[in-house]
Every structure is written in structure tokens, then in C-alpha cells.
Nucleic acid binder design. Structure first.
Lengths: 288, 288
DNA sequence: TATGGATTGGAATTATTATTTCATATTCCC
DNA sequence: GGGAATATGAAATAATAATTCCAATCCATA
């Protein structure tokens, strides 16, 4: 019999991800009942965090002592210390993304490698998504969709940083068979393209500070032709807000000098698919 | 003296928001020590969720019995049932986005309005971000960045759904003053553009199932010229994975038939900014 | 400033929960 | 198939934590 139990080189997992990896790693070499607990733990981490040894054991279909053996097998000295890891995970996850973002920025500045940069962009995106789901006004969304659903052609207007959103909108509208026109012209004919729009059409315009002058200029021109505009921008002082029939304020978090686009993307997709649905409903009604 | 204590009309708060409101409402009419607990509870909800009566009491600077009185004051029959509310809050917040996404899809299908569509896209984006932070391989990230940092010109290759990502990469590389070339040509000269690439350059190629044939064809051609490729795609069966020196598997959640781009975007930005940093470091070293 | 009621602190008590122990069952190897 | 090593179940035990109780204190009011 070799010296088993908590030997020196066996590191106790301190965070959930390490724990998860350890469990997955040993999964096959674990005894049946212990493996049963392991599977349950990974499937129901919340239960482990909050339950008592007895209640968890019952849910997992084992004895409380098996739970403790499972914990010891992993190097913890009891169920309680294993549970700490599951609780810490909830705390972490729940700690506001803003705080995490702060920490990540500091980390990246300190030169903590490229993973930190990646984490920063993920955090920025998550923060932006959280913000927009809190602040988006349902009524505006309805208004914008109604307005766009009535349009003969939807013009899509955005440059520079916002341009990727415009291309995705154009792609999605195309897939939904909704007539649309991305305002970009290699031949420098934007002004002429804009001139084709009529009040029966509509525009989705996207621009964030510092507002691309071309976007603003084209938005002004097009609004003067009486074409309704749905704008996505970042503040009520935005020049776009003045020309717009409906406008959305989207605050994207930034990291390393680049703003996230995730909130804008989500909104853009909701508008696009919303228009698609509205049109389907309308044409169904017309037939009936 | 009126009938105090747990009277009939005094509803016990079952969820955190109601509880919060109740506390805020009564804040002024509470005895000093109880108010002290109330303030602590709202400031440190996580501690209440996880701590023991004794530990929380110590942190809040009161006796354990005061905690229980606080709970009873609010209509609970003891500290334990008050604690349940704080725990439930963590569970809720943390309930996997996957489940929420399921629920939202059902809701949207049932025609629950456009807000449901929007929520669905937000949830899809969040799910994708969670997934990628779990699965991204740090070593691949390092490899890809080193490879791209050495390139004279970075070619960016993506069509259709992935095209927005390509435009954002091109924008960001441009802002960082890194020479790059987006492979898109209104004049149909893509093949010629591709032919200019040499082994001293590098490619970022992005394609998801169903893989745009043009992307695959161009990736093949360019890899045959000996140009190293960093690929972002969705499975190891992807044709892109074959041509790539380094490739990333990104699983984007979809909603209403459109996949999120948020994870891909985050990865793309990390690559871009990572390359920028690496180059700055390298040029600093050369000077020293 | 005296008095009654409300509030608080701290220890005693009770309840709950984790852990240990030991008998029994299972598995693996010779 | 026999026997050792390992795994499991169930109850006993130890530890921990919630609750209660009572004396001391505070505070408003007459």
C-alpha cells in the first residue's frame, strides 16, 4: 500500500475551473458512486453551492458520506471546503462585470499577456449587453420596427467603426428577402445613392462619437428629402438624434481603445428580424 | 397598542427586489441596530447569502440575535428563511443563459412581441461569450498573435455572415497602423489580390458552416503559396482548419436563424490588439 | 427625573449539519 | 473460487450554527 491520501504534490483546486478540469480528468478512474457525485456536481453546481450535505446527497442518490469521500478524493479536507469553491464561483460570476472590467484593464496594462486582452474584450461585450438590456425602451423598439416594416427599401448608413454593423444588417435583410441598400460606393457615388431615397423608404443610420462627418452629412441630406430615419447612436447630443424619427441610445463599453459592438449588433438584429416578422404578419393578414 | 408582529396583511417578501423595496421603505422607522443590519444587507447581499449568522453579525458589527430580530421584523420566521431570499437571488442571476435562451426562443415563437426577439439576441450573445471564455486555448492565442505579428501585410478573408468581422478587423488594424488588406473587390479581382501574398505575409480567415465556397477557395490558393493562415471557424471538420497554421473553434449560439457574432468579434479584437502590442514591444526592444 | 416600554448584548439552549466509524458488499487479482 | 483491497451504506458522534431567553440599557414621555 503506497502513501495515499493528501500527498504533497496533489494540489487542491482553488477555483471552479481548475476543479472542473480535475474532475473531468479523473472521471474514468473514479469509483461508481463517487463518479455519480462528480457528474451531479458538474451538472448542478448551484445545488452544491447552497445545499446541505444531506440534501445534495439525496438529490444525487448517494449517501452523505459519499459526498465527503468525493471531496477528500479531490484533496479537500471535507465537504465544507469543497463547497467553498462552488460558492466562490457564484460570487465571482455575480460580481459586477464593471468591477471585473476594471481589474482586467489593470491586468492588461501591467502586461499580463494576451489572455488578459481577450478577457477584457469579452468583459466589455458582456457589460454592454447588460447595459442595453436594462436601458432599451420597448416602445422605441416597436416604433422603429413599424416604421421600417413600411419602407419600400431600407437604406443602411454607417462608416468606420459602425460599418461592420451595417454590413451585418444588409446581410440579414438580404437573407430575409427585404429590399435594402447599403450606402457605400467605391465609385464615390454616395450622394447620388442617397438622392434616390423617397419618403416611402426608410433609413437605419448608425454612428458613434466621433461621428463620421460623411454619415452625418448623408443623414441630413436624406432626412431633408423626407425619408424617415431610425438612428442608433450614443447620446442625445449626437447630431444623428436630431434627424431621426426614432433613435436608440447605446452605451458600449470599451477596452484597449476599441469599443465593443455587441450591444449594437444585438439591437440591429432585433430590428432586422422584427421587421421580417412584422412583414410576414402583415402579408398573412392581407391574404386572410 | 395595535396588534403587531406577523399580522395577516403583512406579506413576507419572497423575492429580492420586493425585499429590497420593503427595507428601503421602512429604513427610517427601524431601530438603530436593526437599521445597521438593513444597510449592511443591502450593501453586501452576497455575504448574507453565504455567511453564517455569527459571521454576518460580526461583519455588520451587531449580535447574532439582532440579525434574527431583523428577519422577524420583516415577517420572516427566522434568519434562515431570510437568507433563502438572498440565495435565490444568486441562483436566478446565475441561472444558465442556455436555459434562458430556451425560454426566450419559446416565448418569441409564441409571438411574445419584439422585446422577446431582442432579449433572445442578447442571450445568444452572452451564451457565446461565456462559451468562448471557457474554451479558448491560451496557447493558440499566443501562437496566432506571434504569427500575425511577424507578417508584413495581414490579409483579411471572410464573406457573407463573417464579413462584418473582417471589416472590423480591417478597421482596427488600420487604426493601429498595421498594414492590412481586406480581400474584397468590387471589380472581381480577388484572385489577383490573393496572388500578391507571399510567405512573409499572413492571413486571418473566418468562415462558418455553410462555408462560403469563395472563402475556402481563396484560403486554399493562398496557403499553397506558403502564406501562413490563422483561421476562425466552427469545427475541426471545417475545410478552413486544414489550411490553417493555427485555428480557433468558436461556437456561436443562434437565435431566430441568425448566429451571434459576439464571440468571434471578441476573439478578432484580441488578435488585433495583441498583434499591435507585440509589435510595439518588439520595436521597443530593437531600439534598446 | 422617574417610569414604562422598547431595544440591545451576551450566554444558554436547541436544532441542524458535517463527519466519523464500522459492518457489509463489491471488485479485482492470484 | 478464495482472499485481500477497495467501495458503500447506515447509524453514531462531534461540530457548528440558529434561536431563545433574560438581564441590562436606552429612550421617550409625563
Amino acid at each position: 500500500m503506497s502513501l495515499d491520501g493528501p500527498t504533497m504534490d496533489e494540489r487542491v483546486p482553488r477555483d471552479f475551473e481548475t476543479l472542473r478540469a480535475t474532475i473531468l480528468d479523473r472521471r474514468d478512474s473514479l469509483p461508481k458512486r463517487i463518479a455519480q457525485v462528480a457528474a451531479y456536481a458538474l451538472d448542478n453546481p448551484d445545488d452544491i453551492a447552497f445545499g446541505t450535505a444531506a440534501s445534495i446527497a439525496a438529490s444525487a442518490g448517494v449517501q452523505p458520506s459519499t459526498l465527503i469521500r468525493f471531496a477528500q478524493q479531490l484533496g479537500f479536507d471535507g465537504f465544507t471546503s469543497l463547497q467553498q469553491v462552488f460558492r466562490e464561483r457564484l460570487r465571482e460570476r455575480n460580481s459586477s462585470y464593471d468591477e471585473r472590467l476594471q481589474a482586467l484593464r489593470a491586468k492588461a496594462d501591467a502586461g499580463a499577456g494576451h489572455r488578459a486582452i481577450f478577457d477584457g474584450f469579452v468583459a466589455a461585450a458582456s457589460t454592454s449587453l447588460n447595459d442595453i438590456s436594462r436601458t432599451l425602451d420597448d416602445a422605441h423598439l416597436e416604433d422603429a420596427i413599424s416604421l421600417l416594416a413600411k419602407a419600400q427599401t431600407i437604406f443602411v448608413l454607417a462608416k468606420r467603426r459602425s460599418y461592420p454593423v451595417a454590413t451585418y444588417i444588409a446581410y440579414a435583410l438580404g437573407k430575409l428577402k427585404i429590399r435594402n441598400q447599403l450606402i457605400e460606393s467605391a465609385a464615390g457615388l454616395n450622394a447620388e445613392m442617397v438622392a434616390f431615397a423617397t419618403p416611402a423608404d426608410a433609413v437605419i443610420a448608425i454612428s458613434f462619437s466621433p461621428y463620421a462627418p460623411a454619415t452625418i452629412e448623408e443623414a441630413r441630406a436624406i432626412s431633408e428629402q423626407g425619408v424617415p430615419i431610425v438612428a442608433i447612436t450614443d447620446s442625445s447630443f449626437s447630431p444623428l438624434a436630431q434627424f431621426a424619427s426614432v433613435w436608440f441610445e447605446v452605451a458600449e463599453a470599451d477596452f484597449a481603445g476599441f469599443r465593443s459592438l455587441s450591444a449594437t449588433m444585438a439591437l440591429a438584429m432585433a430590428l432586422t428580424v422584427g421587421v421580417g416578422e412584422k412583414r410576414r404578419d402583415a402579408s398573412r393578414k392581407r391574404k386572410a
